[in-house]
Amino acid sequence: MIRKFYNDLQSGRGITVLYIILLSYVILALIWWGLLLFRQSQQITEYERNNLSLRTDSLSQPVAYQLELQRIEKDEHLRTFKFLGEGGTFMGIILLGAFFVYRAVWKQMRLNAQQQNFMMAVTHEFKSPIAVVKLNLETIRKHRLDEEKMKKLLDNTLRETDRLNTLTNNILLAAQLESHKFKPVMEMLNLSALLARVTGNLQGRISTHSIQAHVLPQLWVNGDKFMLELVISNLVENAVKYAPKGTPITINLAPKGDCLYLEVADEGPGIPDAEKAKVFQKFYRIGNENTRKAKGSGLGLFLSQRILAQHGAYIKVRDNTPAGSIFEIAWPAYSTQSA
């Protein structure tokens, strides 16, 4: 029984139950205090009425008797109003404080759970490439391989070290963005050329999906080259993680109205409406680390949103037709030629 209660406390359910019990006790104590005060007020009134009736001069002066009786009743009404006012104020303060305390505790518990999921994901993300690199190096050391097999192993090792480097950079960048220490290096960039180059490099590394880019030329934005490359890579790799193998990843870059839009579309399972805003939270991933199969740390979309906010752009996710998701970035400020 004690162990079960401890597990409930660890999961947050026991804390919620304990919090409700304590809050209920405080509210019931306040109500009981109010009832005792009302009862005391009635006893005071009854005592004053009896005392007034026993006074010998009250019968000989009926006007004074009525005035004194009215004073007693008025005092009782004032006490009742005072008790109701103070009790209602205390009740409101207690409930309001309880709401804010519970919300703060719940947010902290949710953040702790997300951080735990993040640690599990990062541990897995680090162990997987490290194991592959170690295996490849041991194979190269123990066996005499021909040039083709050697090149294949070395290429695989480089890809895994790139994964480690990307993960490390994401973690460091997230910390810098959270502490507001990162300042982007802004310059006029040919986003069309940048997008074509990044998607070409990604297609060279990704063999499970085809990347179909529809990019209008000579579209310029003011931004940080490295950061925008990271955003594009995060969105494409995120689509690759969840879309079935063999399905295309479609990228569109074109102006619409007064804004420039970049869209990354996949044909995966999509994102439920209730999750669309949450996917941009730090460490947040749909499902949990024990059930989800896609790799990731829960930082990619969070970093993308923060980076784009520094560039004056915004990102949202919407449903693709007939299946999948579309991550849409909008730049309010762009040009069709270099400054």
Rank of each mutant, 00 (worst) to 15 (best):
L228N: 02
I271F: 01
S233V: 09
L194D: 06
L195I: 11
W220H: 12
S233K: 12
L235T: 02
L262D: 06
N234E: 05
A243R: 05
L202H: 03
L262P: 05
E267P: 00
C259S: 13
N190Y: 11
W220C: 00
I251T: 10
V264K: 00
N222T: 12
G270L: 03
G270K: 09
I211Y: 01
D258F: 10
L202I: 06
S192Q: 12
L202R: 01
N238C: 08
D258M: 07
L202Q: 03
N222M: 12
V215P: 11
T247A: 08
A243N: 13
A243H: 04
T199P: 00
P217S: 10
L195T: 15
L191F: 15
T199C: 06
T208M: 08
H209I: 08
F226R: 14
G246W: 09
N190L: 08
E237V: 08
P269V: 01
E229W: 09
A254P: 00
H209R: 11
N222W: 10
H214S: 12
I249K: 07
P248M: 04
L219R: 10
S207D: 14
I251V: 15
V264I: 10
H214R: 12
L195W: 01
L194C: 10
Q218N: 15
N234A: 06
G204I: 09
G257V: 11
A265F: 00
L253S: 00
L191W: 12
G223S: 12
A196S: 14
D266K: 01
T208G: 05
N252F: 14
P269L: 01
Q218T: 12
P217Y: 05
R197G: 09
N252S: 14
A254S: 05
I249D: 03
R205T: 11
H209S: 11
Y242A: 03
T208E: 13
L230N: 14
P269F: 04
C259M: 11
V231Y: 09
L230K: 13
N190T: 07
E237N: 14
N252Q: 13
E237H: 07
V221R: 02
N222Q: 14
V221A: 04
W220Y: 15
L194I: 09
W220A: 01
N201C: 02
P244F: 10
Q212N: 15
G270I: 04
G246H: 05
D258A: 12
K225V: 14
I232K: 04
H209C: 10
A193R: 12
P248D: 10
G268L: 06
L219K: 06
I271K: 01
V236N: 01
P244R: 04
L230G: 12
T208I: 03
F226D: 14
D258P: 04
A254T: 06
N190E: 11
M227G: 02
Y261K: 03
A239Q: 02
R205F: 06
V215F: 14
C259A: 11
D266T: 01
K241N: 11
Y242D: 00
A213L: 03
A196Q: 15
L260T: 00
